[in-house]
């Protein structure tokens, strides 16, 4: 049952990504680059997602000590800023602005049969493996 629910969450997440236009590289690049007729609509995607999740997070964390399937919530607790965080985010942003795809939409687009998106996902996994191989965690 827990597997079915996780798959359902993934499917809903994926539908949300393509409905909202996050899988369209031209739209993403048009959002990131305000210099050429800015398309702000992806800001609404973030706004809608944050509004729902912020409320849900508050309710879930107040009402429940543990998730339905499992014994504990696995949530990040660090509050310090370090070079790894900022450098990683900076590198990710360059890749996002270059290809117009971030990890979730990349996977959704790859599953839709786009050869380019499949190449993107393969390169993304290679990039993750390279990071693990070259730097101590």
């Amino acid at each position: 049952m827990s597997i079915v629910v996780a798959a359902t969450a993934g499917a809903l997440f994926g539908v949300g990504l393509w409905v909202s236009g996050m899988t369209r590289p031209a739209k993403v690049i048009g959002f990131l680059d305000p210099s050429r007729g800015w398309d702000p609509s992806l800001g609404f995607v973030m706004g809608g997602a944050v509004a729902v999740y912020a409320l849900a997070n508050r309710v879930v964390r107040r009402r429940r000590r543990e998730p339905w399937f499992g014994t504990a919530f696995h949530l990040p607790t660090r509050r310090d800023l370090d070079v790894r965080l900022l450098a990683g985010a900076a590198i990710f942003g360059v890749g996002w602005g270059l290809g117009g795809l971030c990890p979730g939409p990349g996977l959704v687009a790859a599953a839709s049969g786009s050869g380019t998106a499949v190449a993107f996902v393969a390169a993304m996994v290679a990039g993750m493996l390279a990071q693990r191989a070259t730097m101590r965690r």
């Binding site: 393509w18 409905v19 236009g21 996050m22 899988t23 369209r24 590289p25 031209a26 739209k27 690049i29 990040p76 790894r84 965080l85 900022l86 450098a87 990683g88 985010a89 900076a90 590198i91 990710f92 942003g93 360059v94 890749g95 996002w96 270059l98 290809g99 117009g100 795809l101 971030c102 990890p103 979730g104 990349g106 959704v108 687009a109 839709s112 786009s114 380019t116 998106a117 190449a119 993107f120 996902v121 393969a122 390169a123 993304m124 996994v125 290679a126 990039g127 993750m128 493996l129 390279a130 990071q131 693990r132 730097m135």
Partner: peptide
């Protein structure tokens, strides 16, 4: 609705490498 790629395959591969490396290093993405 899914959209089409706008970059050359080489650029997309470079983008993928950066996205994978960066998100792993920075512990997260969008």
């Amino acid at each position: 609705a899914l959209g089409a790629p706008v970059r050359s395959p080489l650029a997309v591969v470079v983008a993928g490498l950066l996205v994978g490396f960066g998100t792993n290093l920075g512990n997260g993405c969008t």
